[in-house]
């Protein structure tokens, strides 16, 4: 099975798939059509629950169980990375020598880190009002933390970021999400049902019942997961060296 024959198989299969895709595209309803049955019902359900951002309402209220699935995928992927990228016996951890970085870049990193962290928290907090939510805000906050590595060096980042605490934070946030769901059960309705808390006044921070709580839990979980993920990658790329034995 030389590369050439494999290429031919790929091209013929690809051409067949392309033909089918184009045929399917021509029969799809026109782009920009007016018939969106699920969308209209989702908007209606979100407005009855006083959630201004319908996308967050779909994510954390109408399809909260699927978001539980997304969160476990996230958790499992980070767990896989932690296991795969651990330091094996034949590797040693070399202290990274502090790198000298241009003064303006260092000052910029120290200045933008809190601003980006605050923006991340703003996006998580207003998840059920303006565009944003737990997923986006969590990633922004986690990336803000790594400005320290980009602006200074890895030792500075390690001093500020105890990885163990973030792993515990990750597990806590995931269990907080599940506990909020079980609270629905205890409250007599269904798992992850948004019937416990009052829906509050429209377009305010406390509106939407349990949507803000689930939003915050997902925000914390994604932030901690990304920090743990990047911690393992940075360890491998910057600190762990191969024993020169082999």
């Amino acid at each position: 099975m030389t590369r050439r024959t494999r290429l031919w198989v790929l091209l013929t299969g690809g051409a067949g798939l392309a033909a089918l895709l184009v045929a399917a595209c021509l029969r799809l309803p026109h782009f920009g059509g007016d018939r969106h049955p699920y969308g209209d019902r989702a908007v209606h359900a979100s407005l009855t629950r006083h959630t201004a951002n319908t996308v967050s309402s779909v994510n954390f209220d109408q399809r909260a169980f699927d978001t539980l699935g997304e969160m476990t995928i996230l958790f499992a992927a980070v767990l896989g990375c932690v296991v795969l990228l651990r330091q094996t016996r034949d590797e040693r951890r070399a202290r990274p020598e502090p790198a000298e970085v241009a003064r303006p870049v260092r000052r910029y990193a120290l200045l933008v880190l809190p601003v980006a962290l605050l923006s991340g928290l703003y996006i998580v907090a207003h998840g059920q009002l303006s565009p944003g939510g737990g997923f986006q805000g969590g990633v922004v906050a986690a990336t803000a933390l790594h400005l320290l590595y980009l602006g200074a060096d890895y030792a500075a980042l390690e001093r500020v970021r105890p990885v163990g605490m973030y792993e515990v934070g990750d597990a806590l946030a995931s269990s907080a999400y599940v506990v909020t769901g079980i609270a629905g059960l205890i409250g007599g309705t269904a798992f992850l049902a948004n019937t416990l808390l009052p829906y509050g006044t429209f377009n305010t921070l406390s509106s939407g019942g349990t949507v803000p709580l689930l939003n915050a839990a997902i925000g914390m979980e994604v932030a901690c997961a990304v920090v743990v993920l990047l911690a393992r990658f940075l360890d491998q790329a910057v600190e762990i060296e191969e024993e020169s034995g082999r």
Partner: peptide
Amino acid sequence: PDVGLSQLAVCSALTPLLLMLAVRK
């Protein structure tokens, strides 16, 4: 906008950092 925000947050800083660290290793 939500999806655009998510794409911006992920693909402007997180994915490049992961890719470049893997390439370096």
